[in-house]
Computed example of a mutant assay.
Amino acid sequence: MVRDMARERIRGQGSSSGGFVRLVAHTDPVALVGITLSITLSITLDLSNAASGVESLLAGLMGITISLLVDSLARAERRFHLRTLLDGPPWLVRTTTELAGAMRDAAEQHAGTRVAAEAQRRYEQFRLEAEQLAEGRIIRRGDEDEDLIGATRTCVQRLDALTNVMPRASGELSWWRSEIGRRYWEANLEALQRGVQITRVFIYARMSDELSALVEKQRAAGARVGLLPYGVVSPQLHVNLALWDGSSCWEAHMTAHGEIGENQFSVNRTDVNRLTRVFDLCSNAATFQD
């Protein structure tokens, strides 16, 4: 029993210490500085006999009161800000507190372990992705094609695209032969049947039989296809892109081997305008069979 009482006492001391640490962590830094200065001022006035003991105590208490008032105002402002942020879609309101609680538990209950470190890493990754979403961008791996194909299937009037066909380790036209390329072309055919106007420009280093066959295939399907030899435009314009109805865009970020390492879909007006300028420059320099 004595051992249990000692264990409970130690646990209580640890709980009190943890509570104090948590209190300090959640107190506004300005308030902490104010409380510290108030206590220091009270002790200084008392030791230097510049004021009586009662006056020193009152001065310290006044400073602490003002500091706590500042802390209270800061807390109220944060609560108001949180309520404003949570005034959104129901799924956001429902899950935000659960997410924050889970991350806090992972960091506190498993502090110093790989679990806590991984929780911080995943939360940081989530924060970065959320910031991109707030800017109107979706960034996915190179093998994820739902945005490219999905936007083509919902396109209403116009699809403009720029495709670079350059010698690379994976082969010049390997993407069009891949599963993603085939699904994308099927979505193109569906768009053409809906009356969507498709304009595609191929930038190429050499005209091969395979490229000629691909161009004729797309022209026969109803797409307006242009050819642009390498070197006519600046290398900075050699971008694989797609634009849908002038309101959304897709851009492929390439690896050193000429393969798609990352897909970026965007409705950000700056991104759409930038890729529109790139397409227009290449389209104006390309040769079409109109």
Rank of each mutant, 00 (worst) to 15 (best):
residue 181 G to W: 02
residue 88 G to A: 13
residue 174 S to R: 13
residue 83 R to V: 05
residue 39 I to N: 08
residue 72 S to A: 14
residue 262 E to Y: 01
residue 109 Q to G: 11
residue 88 G to P: 09
residue 220 A to R: 03
residue 205 A to H: 12
residue 166 M to G: 05
residue 288 F to P: 00
residue 204 Y to C: 09
residue 202 F to G: 00
residue 83 R to A: 14
residue 233 V to T: 11
residue 171 G to S: 04
residue 234 S to D: 15
residue 250 W to F: 06
residue 42 S to M: 08
residue 64 I to R: 06
residue 71 D to W: 01
residue 171 G to H: 05
residue 244 W to L: 04
residue 91 W to T: 11
residue 114 R to Q: 13
residue 65 T to E: 10
residue 252 A to R: 03
residue 233 V to K: 04
residue 234 S to H: 03
residue 42 S to E: 00
residue 93 V to C: 12
residue 113 T to A: 12
residue 49 N to I: 04
residue 38 S to W: 03
residue 225 V to Q: 07
residue 116 A to N: 00
residue 218 Q to I: 05
residue 160 D to Y: 03
residue 183 R to E: 15
residue 196 V to P: 06
residue 170 S to N: 09
residue 219 R to P: 04
residue 90 P to K: 01
residue 266 S to H: 08
residue 263 N to D: 15
residue 5 M to C: 10
residue 134 A to D: 11
residue 23 L to H: 10
residue 30 V to M: 08
residue 263 N to P: 03
residue 199 T to Y: 01
residue 180 I to V: 12
residue 197 Q to P: 03
residue 100 A to E: 06
residue 230 Y to N: 13
residue 126 F to N: 05
residue 184 Y to H: 14
residue 124 E to G: 02
residue 22 R to A: 12
residue 73 L to Y: 06
residue 266 S to A: 14
residue 176 W to F: 12
residue 285 A to D: 02
residue 49 N to R: 14
residue 45 L to P: 13
residue 214 L to V: 10
residue 161 A to H: 07
residue 209 D to V: 04
residue 248 S to K: 11
residue 169 A to W: 15
residue 37 L to Q: 09
residue 107 A to G: 02
residue 144 E to D: 15
residue 161 A to K: 01
residue 174 S to Y: 11
residue 241 L to C: 04
residue 284 N to A: 09
residue 51 A to Q: 13
residue 254 M to W: 14
residue 289 Q to E: 15
residue 137 R to I: 00
residue 175 W to L: 15
residue 79 R to G: 04
residue 187 A to F: 11
residue 228 L to R: 06
residue 235 P to R: 03
residue 267 V to H: 02
residue 143 D to L: 13
residue 61 L to K: 03
residue 267 V to I: 07
residue 285 A to N: 05
residue 266 S to L: 10
residue 226 G to S: 04
residue 161 A to T: 13
residue 15 S to G: 13
residue 95 T to F: 13
residue 85 L to W: 10
residue 168 R to I: 00
residue 20 F to M: 07
residue 176 W to P: 03
residue 255 T to L: 12
residue 105 D to H: 03
residue 257 H to L: 12
residue 75 R to E: 12
residue 110 H to F: 09
residue 239 V to E: 15
residue 92 L to W: 13
residue 115 V to M: 06
residue 120 Q to D: 00
residue 127 R to Y: 05
residue 233 V to F: 00
residue 230 Y to C: 12
residue 180 I to Y: 06
residue 146 E to G: 06
residue 32 L to M: 08
residue 36 T to Q: 07
residue 195 G to I: 11
residue 22 R to H: 11
residue 280 D to S: 07
residue 252 A to Y: 03
residue 132 Q to V: 06
residue 123 Y to H: 01
residue 37 L to Y: 07
residue 234 S to C: 04
residue 138 I to Y: 04
residue 173 L to S: 01
residue 8 E to K: 10
residue 202 F to H: 09
residue 285 A to R: 01
residue 277 R to Q: 10
residue 204 Y to K: 05
residue 286 A to V: 01
residue 109 Q to Y: 11
residue 118 E to N: 09
residue 259 E to N: 07
residue 184 Y to A: 12
residue 214 L to K: 04
residue 155 C to F: 02
residue 146 E to Y: 01
residue 230 Y to D: 15
residue 26 H to L: 13
residue 245 D to L: 00
residue 132 Q to M: 06
residue 136 G to I: 05
residue 227 L to P: 02
residue 242 A to L: 03
residue 261 G to R: 02
residue 105 D to T: 08
residue 111 A to Q: 12
residue 179 E to Y: 07
residue 80 F to L: 03
